[in-house]
Each structure stands twice: as C-alpha cells, then as structure tokens.
Design a protein around this nucleic acid. Structure first.
Lengths: 189, 189
DNA sequence: TTGAAAACGGAGGGCCCCTCCGTATATGCT
DNA sequence: AGCATATACGGAGGGGCCCTCCGTTTTCAA
C-alpha cells in the first residue's frame, strides 16, 4: 500500500516502446510463429531485454495487438440488440478475417483468446468478446434463427482454424470467407 | 531402359524399414511437426541416413501413412453411387477425424494431399481422393441436396483445419466432429 | 556525487533443420 | 576367396530459435 516505488527508468520505457513497435512489424507479417529473436534484433535490443519485458510470447502478442483486439471487442459489444443477430455475427467474423489478412499476428492474439491457459491471464478482453458473441448467439437462437447448442468459442475456434490452416496467397481471403460462410449457414436451423 | 542396376543393399533396406517403423510411432504421437532427429535417434540410425531415404518431411509422412491414406482412398471410392451421398461424405469425414485422433501424424499426410506443391509429387492418391469426393459432391448437388459451389478441397481443408487447430484433449474428437457437422449442414441448400 | 536498485545484453545449454563428405561395407565380378 | 567400387552410413557442422542466468552498465534519488 505505502511502498513508494521509484519512477520507472527511462531506458526501460524506451526499449519497451521500441520492442512493441518492431513487434508490430515483425509479428504483423510473420504470424504467430514469428521469431522473437528477430524482433529483438530488429529492435536493436538484447534478447534478454525482450524476455524481461514480455516473459511469454503471449504477453508480447497481447501488448502489440490489444488495441486491435479492443476494437473488435467494442464492435462486438456494439452489435448487441441488432435486429439481425446472425448477420451481425457474420459481419463481425468477416471483419476479423480481414484484420488477420493484414496483420497476420492477430492470429497470435486470437489464439490467446482461445486458449484455456492464457485466457485467464488476459481474461478481460476474452470475457467481453465471448460474452458479446454469446449474447448475439442467444438472441439469434431465441429468435429461432439458429440452433441452440453453439457457443462463441465454437465460432472463434472455427474462424481461427480456417485462417490458420493455409498460408496467405492471392485468393486466401476469398477462400476463408467462403468456408466461413458455409459454416455460418450451418448454424441456421 | 537397359541399365541393370545392382540389387539394393541389405543394410539400406533394413534401415529404411526401421525408420518407417519408428516414424510410425514418433510421428503417430507427435503430429506433423514432430522431430525427425528424434525419429533417427530412436531408430538407432544416423540423421544423414534418414534424410537420404526420405529427402523431405513429406516423403517420410507419405511412406508411413500411405497405407492409411490408401484405405481412405478406397473407402471414398467405394462410396460412389451411394444413395445418400451427403451422409456418405459425412461418414467418410468422421472416419478421417477418428483416424487423426489415433494417428496424429495423419495430419502430416493429409497436408500433403492439400498442398499444391506436394500434391504433384504424390498425386496418385490425392487425385483419387479428390476425384471420389468430387464425385459424391456432384451427385449430392445434382440431387439438389447441397449447394453446387463446393469442392473436395473445401471439405478437406476445413476438416484439416478443425483437426489441427487444437491440441488433443479429452473432448477433442467431440468438438471437432460437432464443428464439422455444422459445416456439413451448411452445405445443404 | 555516489551507492544501490533496475535494466541491459549476450553467452550458453537445449533442441532442431538439413547438407556434406570422409569412412565403412555389401555386391558382383574375377 | 579376393578385390574393386558402387552404395550406404553417420555425424560433424553451419544456421536458427527458445529461454535463462548473471556479470556489467545505467539511471534514479538521497
């Protein structure tokens, strides 16, 4: 309570900043399996420094993409009460795929949302996303629009899987969206 | 044409055999990213020997799982003319998932079928699978059972993606099958 | 100014990929 | 049986990446 801590060191702040900035670039292109040593190198910082600031891969992804994630969260929450909840879900998922196309690293951030272990650590946004989507699902289910046994996790896992299962290419987005749409159609009753 | 080659050396045959046998084990459990050095080690053979016999990861996967793949091919071909082609497809896909649950390495073999580059190298079985599935799809489409713009690749990619997107766990199979079924429902018109 | 807290950075142990080449050996032909 | 040589073996070695640990440097604050 009363522990007066020193002011955070300037170099630490600077490095942290550089790392996030560089990671945005490297992870953005490289996706969830990109090399962290490459990030450190390109940031002109020792690998130890990277790991001190971001003890886990997830931590880094979260630092880099939480802004984008937050936007997704807000969009999802804004959809509540939509009068065509299923279409709203579809739009949201499409936006998500588009985002992944640009920032491949989002897959890393999304996997955080999906993984049981890390979900705990970054629960705030995970919970909100899941809650918002589940809300829409319930709405759609109550309206008799879709089956009742589908969860937000199902949706996210499927989208994630489809995005991840193929390297980006010319028709990447079209393919993923098409398959995703088929899945969404499958939700209808 | 007339080059009489020497008989293949006995030790070569032996090692090849050991490798495939060991790989069946290691890759079976480890999935498509398993360590090849581990295979060589466990087979009591130099890593160089492994790479000489199987120049690429795909080659090894193919050697190990082509029998299983062949069975899938034959099953698929046996489905031709089924009077409920969509259900036939579903069954086939389910069997596929079940196989992957047991032999995680099958994912490696399946990715061969899916990848443009390696498809060429192992085209025989790829072609047959795709042909058989496309046959069923056409049948189902002609019967007005499903939409017409779906290809065998779509089916395989989706199944592969769903299988790959999560580590095995207690409810792995159930989840994958459920999502797969939703997708299949989405094919209906 | 100066001492200690805070941060840095990279060496090092582990594991893996794949290639290359000196060494060993099974074959086939005298 | 003996020998030459085509074949095969194996592992060192160059590259990478992951992550930890700790001696050195820098910053803050008294």
């Amino acid at each position: 309570m009363e522990v007066r801590k020193r002011k955070p060191r300037a170099d630490a702040l600077r490095n942290r900043e550089r790392l996030v900035e560089t990671a945005k670039d490297v992870l953005g292109k490289g996706g969830p399996d990109a090399s962290l040593e490459a990030v450190a190198r390109q940031a002109g910082v020792g690998i130890g420094t990277l790991y001190r600031h971001f003890p886990t891969r997830e931590a880094l992804f979260h630092a880099v993409f939480s802004r984008d994630l937050e936007r997704l969260v807000e969009t999802a929450e804004g959809l509540k009460g939509s009068n065509d909840p299923l279409e709203a879900l579809r739009d949201w998922l499409h936006a998500n795929v588009a985002l992944v196309e640009t920032k491949r690293g989002m897959l890393g951030a999304l996997s955080i949302v999906m993984t049981e272990e890390s979900k705990e650590a970054y629960s705030a946004q995970s919970e909100r996303i899941l809650a918002a989507l589940n809300g829409l699902l319930k709405q759609a289910a109550d309206a008799g629009q879709i089956r009742e046994d589908v969860t937000a996790e199902d949706l996210l896992q499927t989208m994630y899987a489809l995005c991840y299962s193929r390297e980006p290419g010319p028709d990447w987005r079209a393919r993923v969206l098409r398959l995703l749409d088929i899945f969404i159609d499958g939700l209808k009753r």
